[in-house]
Every structure is written in C-alpha cells, then in structure tokens.
Amino acid sequence: MESILRKIRVEVNPKLYSKEPFSSELGILIVQEGAQLVHEIGLELFTFKKLAQKIGRTEAAIYRYFENKHALLLYLSAWYWAWLEHNFVFASSNIEDPEERLAIGIRLMVDGPTYLENEFLDPKLLRKLVINESIKGYLTKSVDSEHESGIFAQIYRFGDRLANIIREIKPEYKFPKTLIFSVMESSLLLAFNAVHLPGMTETPHEGSEQYQFFYQLVFKTISND
C-alpha cells in the first residue's frame, strides 16, 4: 500500500499554475525547494528572487510556472489536501463501519497523513507548511474569484467525503459540512497554537490529546443533535 502511494503524483487544479511543475526538472525543483523555503522563512519573507538564488535559476524561469508566491502557496496547500484524500481512501477502503471511517478521517485532519513517503513532495514538510502558512492563502480579497474558478476543489472534496459519512451515520443531522470544515480549520489552528501560543490550549503539540478533543467534539455533537 505504502509503495503505491509513494509513487503517486496527485492532481491539482491546473488553474493554480501557468505550467505543470512536474513536466520538467526545473518545475520539480521549484515546488520542492519552494516548499522548503516557505517553511523555513515564512510566506511574508519568501520571494521568487530568494528562491531563484537558492536553486541557481532566474526569477523569470520561476514565473513561467507560477504567477506569484500566492499561487505557489495555494498549489502546495491543494497538493496536501489531495494527498490527505489519497491517505483516507487507502486507509478506509475495506472498512464498512461508518463511525470507524469517520474516526480515520478525524485522525488524518488532526494528526496529518498516515503515509509519509512520496517521490514528488514531502508530506511531512507539507503538513508543517499547511499548519503555519495555508490560512494566508485564503484570507485575501481574491478569494471569491479563486473560489469560483474551482481552485479549492481538493479541500472541498476531502471535506465532502467526511461530511457524507456523517450523513450516513445520522441522516437527520443538519450541519455535516459545517462541522467537518470547522474541524479542518480549527485543528490546524490548534496545532499552531500548541507550538507557538501554548497559553491558548491544554493540549500539547505531541500525543493524542488533540485527536481526543476533536473526536469527542464530532461524535458528541452528532449524538446530541
């Protein structure tokens, strides 16, 4: 199973890039080293000039693949959520119990991917990047037009899978999407706070406490509705 996922190159909306990054060695270098540099210095300090210096190429070469650093961040975020969906499909494929499948989905949202090896992008690095940087890709004036273009399809698709499981468990529950996407966003924020703003949570950044919190939140919300 893990050997299959290791070789998978996930597909993201082509509107996120000007040229398919994995169509060339340069494109691969841009996304791999770009992800590392964004993680190291943060989106605010990240520039294509710095990336160009790091990889020994020109800024113009990078702009042939991505319109700007915002597009690169959205691409990396979309890649992460698509990878998480692949993890969920593989992990839950032979499980009939919807509550067990939902628990797997919650675990993935809270703890990140189960399968941590991929030949194209490092899932462990993407997890750290998404926790620290991804929200900066959504809270912009351009989010409405980006939403209409479908570039958030990967995060929607993963969330919809879990929302459908809630409907399977309790069809009368009115807010499955709201509940799931609230967990998706707040689990990332909690992971950030546990490291950088620990006064905001009782849960450490390691261990099972964060998962236990969100597991109880979801299942008690459904059962008490």
Rank of each mutant, 00 (worst) to 15 (best):
142 S>W: 12
149 S>T: 08
158 F>Q: 01
101 R>E: 00
143 V>E: 10
152 F>K: 03
152 F>I: 05
135 I>C: 03
149 S>N: 11
144 D>S: 13
144 D>Q: 12
131 I>W: 02
129 L>T: 05
163 A>P: 07
121 L>A: 05
131 I>P: 01
118 N>F: 03
166 I>V: 12
130 V>R: 00
125 L>K: 09
158 F>L: 02
144 D>C: 04
156 Y>S: 11
153 A>C: 05
141 K>R: 14
162 L>N: 11
151 I>S: 03
150 G>H: 03
117 E>Y: 10
153 A>D: 14
133 E>V: 05
99 E>K: 15
105 G>P: 02
104 I>H: 09
130 V>Y: 00
139 L>N: 05
162 L>I: 07
153 A>E: 13
147 H>Q: 08
138 Y>T: 07
141 K>D: 13
164 N>W: 00
123 P>T: 06
166 I>M: 10
154 Q>Y: 00
162 L>R: 08
104 I>P: 10
166 I>P: 03
154 Q>T: 10
152 F>E: 03
165 I>W: 06
142 S>Y: 12
133 E>A: 03
165 I>S: 02
102 L>I: 06
128 K>E: 15
138 Y>S: 07
161 R>E: 10
144 D>Y: 13
144 D>V: 15
117 E>S: 14
156 Y>V: 13
108 L>A: 02
110 V>D: 01
142 S>C: 05
105 G>C: 09
162 L>K: 12
127 R>H: 15
99 E>M: 12
132 N>W: 01
139 L>D: 08
157 R>Q: 15
166 I>C: 05
153 A>M: 07
160 D>N: 14
156 Y>H: 14
118 N>H: 05
128 K>D: 14
144 D>L: 15
149 S>I: 09
147 H>N: 14
100 E>G: 00
111 D>M: 11
146 E>Y: 13
107 R>N: 14
147 H>V: 04
120 F>S: 03
136 K>C: 01
128 K>H: 08
140 T>S: 12
120 F>K: 03
132 N>M: 05
127 R>S: 05
110 V>C: 06
126 L>P: 07
143 V>I: 14
116 L>Y: 02
115 Y>K: 08
100 E>N: 12
153 A>I: 11
104 I>G: 11
107 R>H: 14
166 I>W: 04
143 V>W: 13
163 A>D: 04
148 E>Q: 13
130 V>L: 00
148 E>M: 09
114 T>P: 00
118 N>E: 06
116 L>M: 10
129 L>S: 04
114 T>C: 00
99 E>N: 14
155 I>R: 09
143 V>K: 09
157 R>L: 12
115 Y>G: 04
122 D>G: 11
110 V>H: 05
159 G>V: 01
147 H>Y: 15
151 I>Y: 01
123 P>L: 11
160 D>F: 12
101 R>T: 05
113 P>N: 09
142 S>K: 15
